[in-house]
């Protein structure tokens, strides 16, 4: 029953799309029939071109995501636990959080050139702020009674940080990581569309659009969506395993 409800919406959308295309409700120049998109998807995967694009996008996204986590988690923990640091940095962080990363393309191009570094740097910039804010919020949820109890037992500040603050902040960390993971895929696809490259799903989508190979374009879009979905499922599995204790 559970599985049935999960597939209900995608099947419904696919059915509407098929029926709409069958009765020529949609102009194929903007929305080709699903069977054409599926054919294009499989031929792209078979030829290996789409696989190459997919691998390039995944590698860039994962690199950006991991670097964002490496930057965002420790700084978020420090900000959450050191009120002075939080007060001093919060307005600046809120400012940069509100600036769309894609609007800063020229700045990143200036500093990092037009290669993969610029694309990954944009992801690190946008995603680390999300991870940071969620981690800081998570670390504010640490129960003071737990810290006091550890102090009475003679725990050092480092020990409290390592054995209490980090585990208890992890729900916030994971909330940030989940959002950051999806955003890292979106940003990489967008940067591939606009910053020079010859491989990647973003490039594939943009290129297909320019030459009016619309089924190819949708094949790239569907693959990007599937990739994001599967990455989220993987992260949720890890989260369920590690955070089994949350709220209990």
């Amino acid at each position: 029953m559970k599985r049935f409800t999960i597939v209900l919406l995608p099947v419904g959308i696919l059915a509407l799309w098929s029926v709409g295309s069958g009765i020529h409700l949609f102009d194929p120049l903007f929305l080709p029939p699903p069977w054409e998109v599926v054919t294009s998807l499989f031929s792209g995967l078979r030829s290996g071109a789409l696989v190459q694009d997919l691998v390039a996008t995944v590698l860039r996204s994962i690199a950006g995501f991991l670097l964002a986590a490496i930057v965002g988690v420790p700084t978020g923990l420090l900000m959450g636990r050191i009120p002075t640091l939080a007060r001093a940095t919060q307005p600046t962080i809120d400012f940069f959080r509100s600036v769309p990363a894609t609007a800063l393309f020229p700045l990143f191009l200036f500093f990092f050139g037009i290669g993969d570094t610029a694309k990954i740097a944009i992801v690190v910039y946008a995603c680390s702020l999300i991870v940071l804010v969620n981690t800081a919020y998570g670390s504010l949820q640490v129960k003071e009674a737990r810290i006091l109890c550890a102090k009475v037992m003679g725990a050092t500040r480092w020990c409290i940080f390592w054995k209490i603050v980090i585990p208890e902040s992890s729900p916030g960390v994971f909330a940030g990581l989940r959002v950051a993971l999806s955003l890292s895929f979106v940003l990489i696809v967008v940067t591939e569309m606009f910053i020079g490259t010859t491989v990647g799903l973003g490039y594939h989508i943009m290129n297909s659009q320019i030459v009016y190979r619309i089924p190819d374009m949708y094949a790239g879009i569907i693959l990007a969506g599937l990739m994001g979905y599967l990455a989220n499922v993987g992260l949720l599995q890890i989260e369920r395993r590690l955070l089994h204790w949350v709220g209990r």
């Binding site: 009674a145 737990r146 054995k163 204790w245």
Partner: peptide
């Protein structure tokens, strides 16, 4: 050794 009144909040659920 100190057992606090809100001892459930001092145990480590993870």
């Amino acid at each position: 050794g100190y057992v606090f009144q809100n001892h459930a909040d001092t145990l480590l659920p993870w």
